[in-house]
Amino acid sequence: MSGEICPLAAFRAGDRGLVQPGAPEHPAFQRLLAMGLLPGSEVAVIQVAPLGDPIEIEFGGLRLSLRKSDAAAVQVLRLG
């Protein structure tokens, strides 16, 4: 549902969202920040691995494989 705030781990393939402010002290989040996943930037889930985990995300032209346990640290606002 558009406008809902949820962890990135809850996204399905094709979902897009905006990274929410706040910076949890989570090693994955700190690394994602360095890679440019800034609060306010857009992130999309490209696909989910065949066994259900990890997920492939894209932001700022970068594609990353990310485990759901790490993706749980990122709060996103779902876009339409």
């Binding site: 989570h26 090693p27 994955a28 690394r31 994602l32 890679m35 990890p54 492939e56 970068l62 594609r63 990353l64 494989s65 990310l66 485990r67 790490d70």
Partner: peptide
Amino acid sequence: TRPQPFLLEM
């Protein structure tokens, strides 16, 4: 040692 997040650039 602390486990590292598995972030892998494609």
